[in-house]
Design a protein around this nucleic acid. Structure first.
Lengths: 338, 338
DNA sequence: TAAAAATGGCATCATTAAAAGACATTGCCG
DNA sequence: CGGCAATGTCTTTTAATGATGCCATTTTTA
């Protein structure tokens, strides 16, 4: 409620002096500065960010686009952890976090971000092929992308190559030779994972038939269940299935249990992400945990740095390493050929 | 980028005329209004909310406090669904949603909300006894609380009494006579649930020993596991356990499986909330689903109504009804006494 | 007395609300 | 029927919101 004007009046100085006293300007005497600060404190002064924005064009507000194709995003175990971490980091730096409005159809994302005066936007978990998102990426807003690489912006993503190869190495070490991979929808990250899958198998000296690589979608239980069905119906089915993510794995598990098969007795499975719940269900899911806390933290820091040091900042690609979570869903099998 | 001033210059009219043309003022000729609107469209005009806020004290921005004691909130299956729905509803009404900053320790929640110029705040999933939260509730900000009743504000909560009694009725119908309840931490909602539990049992003509009611905390797997242990160690253990929520139930399940007991073979369990994952694990959890979509929607609508119609608006308590989800974790047992 | 330090005045950011002004149309009376 | 006031429609002027930063001014110090 109290404004600079009120404090100025109360202290008998000018508004400019108050502004400078509260900011860290050097051209104010220590005595005056202290007097003003004390009075501001006393009167419960809070800066008016809108007024400040008008002059400085800085809102100290960053936007987040967290919405997948199905209109969720928040209910997405993996990304919500990233968002939580991003939010904490941004807030500690004095920024507030606002959802980029996805429901006002008369404005594009770019327009909405400008309208709200966002200092920057973090994008994750969205339909990257959407024209609206594309235009956002092409705009000159400060942007950081999570789990997606674009040319002009800083990208934060987990080390998918290492993740997939760690899983494959582990699965092979358990004696599996027939490993299938149900992938997510066609994205750059998916491409990296498939390439890593092929390479890891090659390294292990395994030949995998093309029928062992099937395309589903992330977090799509139904579609993943369908693909699992296809795999199990093969004349020579795999002994282990890699799923797009932990959530989708539950779809596959449904199909497996539906056939009265057991995990890992009849078939082994592995997920990807390391969502907490997958550690709590029995058998505990074997998966590769992404370091969501680090991803959110790095994304926030980079975005803020690009906002506060626009001249010196250069976009980077951050590969965040994760960790294999050895659960109980990959069983040891005797190799047929020793 | 383009401001009213630019449009005014381009159209050869005054700034005020442009402002009124774009707003729905009646005292502008249709011709002028159209000309101005076309030009605004052409120039890609976007209102500057900060400037608007300065004049009108309306930010079209609402805050959300979604943070539990452990610093999470977003990763909370139940509340993240509520938030998702609240966000959708608010955004459709033209509002943006901003997290109430919980990390800048030099400002209280009230101060931060004022600083950010929030039109209102929705509170859920927080430590209601926290002094900071208390002050927020006592402030004259527009507030709606979710899953918590306070005197001066609109509250949106699920019909806990109906939820618990539905569960008990169902569990009794499956033949159970010895039903235990591990509760969440001591809150008004917990109180309602405990009362409902006692009443439902009384109605069913059952006497339950006090040792069957234990206090844990919501979403606390460890503590809930500990309580489950206590129940199983009783000389006369229950045949069915009601958990504080679905998440906590997994803690209990861990203890049960740890003893090589089966669900529902040896012991039956039920959760509360109806989080999606609980339907995907096997055996599927029997639980009571809260209508999170409705809760978020109602909360957003009420908050916005209280903002837009401050004079006619009166606080209300909304009881949102839920639905029993018959899973597989409550088994049928033969009653000992027929 | 000049230089240095401290403070104040004022324009500015984009918007809106209230009030005033410009202009045309209508009604009424002589 | 002409002229003047009244009414109504449309538009502009002015002021105000709160903070900042440049530049000018005043005060202090060397």
């Amino acid at each position: 409620m109290a404004s600079l004007k009120d404090i100025a009046a109360a202290c008998g100085v000018s508004v400019a002096t108050v502004s400078k006293s509260l900011g860290n300007h050097t051209d104010i005497s220590a005595a005056t500065r202290e007097r003003v600060r004390k009075m501001a404190e006393e009167m419960g002064y809070l800066p008016n960010i809108s007024a400040r924005y008008l002059k400085t064009n800085r809102s100290y507000n960053i936007g987040v686009l967290f919405e997948d194709a199905s209109g969720n995003g928040l209910t997405h175990d993996f990304f919500s952890e990233v968002l939580q971490s991003l939010k904490n980091e941004a807030e500690m730096a004095g920024y507030d976090v606002t959802f980029l409005n996805t429901r006002v159809k008369s404005m594009s994302y770019v327009e909405r971000a400008r309208y709200r005066g966002l200092d920057g936007v973090a994008i994750a978990c969205t339909d990257w092929k959407d024209e609206n998102v594309q235009k956002l990426l092409e705009s000159n807003l400060k942007i950081v992308t999570i789990d997606h690489v674009s040319d002009r912006h800083t990208a934060v993503l987990s080390d998918n190559k290492d993740g997939i190869s760690s899983l494959i190495r582990y699965i092979c070490s358990m004696g599996h030779r027939k490993i299938a991979f149900i992938t997510g929808e066609d994205t750059r990250v998916t491409g990296i994972r498939i390439a890593a899958f092929r390479e890891a198998l090659r390294t292990a000296g395994l030949q995998i038939p093309e029928e062992y690589i099937l395309h589903s979608a992330y977090r799509d239980l139904e579609k993943t269940r369908e693909m699992t069905k296809q795999l199990l119906d093969l004349p020579d089915p795999p002994t282990c299935i890699l799923f797009p993510d932990d959530m989708a794995a539950f779809g596959g598990i449904g199909e497996i249990y539906g056939r009265k098969l057991s995990v890992p007795g009849h078939i082994s499975i592995a997920g990807y992400d390391g969502i907490p719940i997958a550690r709590l269900t029995r058998p505990a899911l074997t998966t590769f945990a992404q370091d969501t806390a680090a991803m959110g933290r790095i994304a926030a820091r980079c975005l803020i740095r690009s906002i506060e040091e626009p001249d010196s900042y250069r976009p980077e690609v951050h590969l965040v390493s994760g960790q294999l979570l050895e659960g109980e869903t990959v069983g040891r099998i005797r190799s047929l050929r020793g």
